[in-house]
Computed example of a mutant assay.
Amino acid sequence: MIAVSWSGGKDCAVALRELRADPDVVVAGLLTTVREDVQRSSMHGVRREHHEAQADALGLPLRVVELPADVGNDEYEARMRTAHDAMASDGVERVVFADLFLADVRAYREANLADTPLDGCWPLWGRDTTDLAREFAEDFDAVVVCVDDDALDASFVGRTFDRAFLADLPGDVDPCGEHGEFHTFVRDGPGFDEPVAVEPTDCVTKTVGDGTFHYCELK
């Protein structure tokens, strides 16, 4: 059995679709993290209830790891280790990540799993991000919920992830946002029993660490 590391965004949705198409793979559920004080995903800024709605629409259980607002590596790794051990006790053997090409991120994930009974799995690793982005835009419905001001201005947040969005991206921005240029929330697509009924509303700009990010509220 496997569990999917779930951000709620496009890449993990594609990974889940491909895994579910394999008759030899059993998807046990989704694993996500939220800030415990605000109950939102840390980078995407999406409320926990929206991730729960995604899991319901996908017909999968969602395991949520709550993290402190200013979590350090040691505390993050300890809480994830607890979650991984609990998953292994439930029969999960592998955790699936939707990373595409960042070797340092993959190495960090592998190190976090090294002392657990679980292995990592990267079904999208090495895929061409332009092709993957276009494929996703054709098959899924997603909204852009966060953009990094260093890469994109505020006009990009709240937009639907579609061919028009891709056409407007500057040439130095990865079409899948693999460097963190933007993040998405998937509302519908293959594997969803029904759409997640949310729409982008208020947009806010926040300083996070040394960066500036534009977020879009979903209601």
Rank of each mutant, 00 (worst) to 15 (best):
S5W: 10
G9T: 11
V14C: 10
D24G: 09
V26H: 12
T33K: 01
V34Y: 02
E36M: 10
Q39L: 09
V46S: 06
R48L: 15
A55Q: 06
D56P: 00
D56C: 03
A57F: 10
L60Y: 00
R63Y: 00
P68F: 07
N73K: 04
M80Q: 04
R81N: 02
T82A: 03
A83H: 02
A83Y: 02
A88C: 01
D90A: 10
G91Y: 10
A98S: 15
L100F: 03
F101Y: 12
A103V: 04
V105E: 07
N112P: 01
A114G: 06
D115A: 11
W122K: 02
P123T: 02
P123C: 01
W125D: 06
T129C: 09
E138G: 08
F140P: 00
V144Y: 09
D149L: 13
L152C: 04
D153G: 10
S155D: 11
F156Y: 15
G158F: 03
A164D: 15
C176Q: 09
E178T: 10
H183D: 05
V186C: 07
V186K: 03
G189Q: 06
G189T: 05
G191Y: 08
D193Y: 05
P195Y: 11
E199V: 13
E199L: 12
P200S: 13
T207M: 04
T207W: 06
G209Q: 04
T212M: 09
T212K: 12
